[in-house]
Design a binder for these strands. Structure first.
Length: 494
RNA sequence: CGAGAUGUAGCGCAGUUGGCUAGCGCAUCUGGUUUGGGACCAGAGGGUCGGGGGUUCGAAUCCCUUCAUCUCGACCA
């Protein structure tokens, strides 16, 4: 056994770390907190990008690119914003290196100090609003609907592959609008795009809602979020969309003449999802045998393994399979035919299971004689022997079925792990078991802080939709007994 | 940034009362036999023992120092 995963039950974090490395998604780099995303992991990101980008374009957005480096002064224009990010910014102070006097190392040239230091972007609101203010003079210039695919850097103390790294890849949408209502609707619309993507492409069910003041993005009026539940019972914030009000417009002096000829500050949104989604994908579906990828994101949807003795037999099997491969490709299915004779079939089976390939086909001498093929599905780990006739359409349907099944499993899991509690004592017990908890809260930051302090649980969001009977009805805060409008979603989170 | 642990071949580890040429498993390479769930035999290559300094006739082993990683806290998409 070349590659063994730590079982989830034994050590969930270790399982996750093992999987990331052994499934060839990413590895540790020479730079603290930064990872190398390997080709297999990156191709999952590329598929995510394709699906998201298409949805952004369909909703009228265009892509652009803004600089990596931001003048330090920009960050401090919005008071809350700087407060939120100042502690985790990397700063560029010099623009030149030189060889030291001993001639054996390069050192920073003290002569080359920057007049104004530059910040490696933790997010781009400031540089973008400094730019947008020049683009916007009239209501006729609005809306601006831009997105950028970029890297950002947040100097985190503790990092984990995909879930929290110092540098990560993401997209950030930044839009400018004429009215409060239009911007607010945009923030909601993009949250819905994220939720649709999470559920239909990633097969990860999410709870949509609004963040409490404490958890809100620094500089936003409101932050909307999609929250997913991982297999260890912890929540993962998987995407956020912010209604920024006029905060950044005011900070950067972005005004326009409205339809009444008056000067007004521009209304804004921003929204993003990151490579963290790969972490969500792993922790939502995978098992002790390795990754389980939903067909809609799997870089390889079908792998075909020939089982042969000698070159002559391989040739015969390959000929038999060629039309099947062609037909699958015609149906838009990504296929890998692994006829390498350097690895045994058993090794390949284990390897592709580890990598989460949704469907595996195998053909040996027996199948060839019978005109059959072995079909194995990753999500259920079941095998069946099927006739070669009509196999391609069968596989196409099977992939759709697997996508549906993976999602349903995740929905069922969430259903089993979403509870309501009415007393704080009960809450303390339940939170130890993990999962989502719907409970009443008095709406104050003090109570929220007390709960976090005592239980490590945070308010993930105030959900938009109802998940259990009566969760939208008023009640009494489980801690203080003060009135509460509706139940809010608690969990321990990543 | 606080507490603890660990650094020996690509990976996982043994060796640490100071003493021969630093070892084992996996991986790698060569040749052969194999191929329906992580094959077998034979041979081979691969090491600044995390870095620096010290003690000593002699250091992976003892001392000092430094760096890195992991776990747990504080902080966070």
């Amino acid at each position: 056994m070349a590659k063994e995963l730590t079982p989830r039950a034994e050590n969930y974090s270790q399982w996750y770390n093992d999987l990331v490395v052994k499934a060839d998604l990413a590895e540790q780099s020479a730079v603290r907190g930064c990872m190398v995303i390997k080709p297999y992991g990156y191709s999952i990101w590329e598929k995510m990008q394709q699906e998201l980008d298409r949805r952004f374009k369909e909703t009228g957005h265009v892509n652009a690119y803004f600089p990596l480096l931001i003048p330090k002064s920009f960050l401090s224009r919005e008071a809350k914003h700087v407060e939120g990010f100042a502690k985790e910014c990397a700063v560029v102070t010099h623009y030149r290196l030189k060889v030291n006097d001993e001639g054996n190392a390069v050192v920073v040239d003290p002569e080359a100090k920057l007049e104004e230091e530059l910040i490696v972007r933790p997010t781009s609101e400031t540089i973008i609003w400094n730019t947008y203010k020049n683009w916007i003079k009239s209501w006729r210039d609005l809306p601006i609907l831009c997105n950028q695919w970029a890297n950002v850097m947040r100097w985190e103390m503790r990092t984990r592959p995909f879930l929290r790294t110092a540098e990560f890849l993401w997209q950030e949408g930044h839009t400018a609008h004429e009215t409060y209502e239009e911007a607010e609707a945009e923030a909601q619309r993009m949250l819905n795009v994220y939720a649709d993507f999470a559920e239909n492409v990633m097969a990860v069910p999410v709870v949509k809602g609004v963040k409490s003041e404490t958890e809100r993005f620094a500089g936003a009026v409101d932050t909307y979020t999609i929250e997913a539940l991982m297999q260890d019972g912890k929540a993962l914030q998987s995407g956020t969309s912010h209604f920024l009000g006029q905060n950044f417009a005011k900070a950067f002096g972005a005004q326009f003449q409205n339809r009444n000829g008056e000067l007004e500050y521009v209304w804004a949104t921003s929204w993003g999802v990151s490579t963290r989604l790969i972490g969500a994908l792993i922790m939502a579906h995978s098992d002790d045998n390795g990754l389980v990828l939903p067909p809609n994101l799997a870089p390889i949807q079908v792998v075909i393994v020939p089982i042969f003795k000698g070159e002559e037999q391989l040739k015969q099997i390959s000929e038999k399979l060629a039309p099947v491969i062609a037909e699958l490709k015609q149906l838009g299915i990504s296929v890998k035919y692994d006829d390498a004779d350097t690895k045994k079939p058993g090794w390949k089976f284990a390897e592709y299971e580890l990598k989460g390939v949704p469907v595996r086909l195998a053909m040996g001498a027996r199948d060839m004689e019978n005109g059959t093929i072995e079909v194995a599905r990753r999500d259920t780990l079941t095998k069946e022997t099927k006739s070669l006739d009509g196999i391609a359409t069968y596989i196409k349907d099977l992939l759709a079925d697997i996508q549906k099944n993976i999602f349903q499993k995740a929905v069922d899991y969430r259903k089993q792990n979403i509870k309501t509690v009415d007393t704080y004592e009960e809450f303390k017990q339940e939170i130890e078991k993990g999962g989502f908890i719907l409970a009443h809260w008095d709406g104050t930051a003090e109570t929220e802080a007390k709960i976090k302090e005592e239980t490590k649980a945070t308010i993930r969001c105030i959900p938009f939709d109802s998940y259990v009977d009566g969760d939208k009805e008023p009640g009494k805060c489980m801690v203080t007994g003060k009135p509460s409008k509706c139940r809010v979603l608690f969990a321990r989170a990543y």
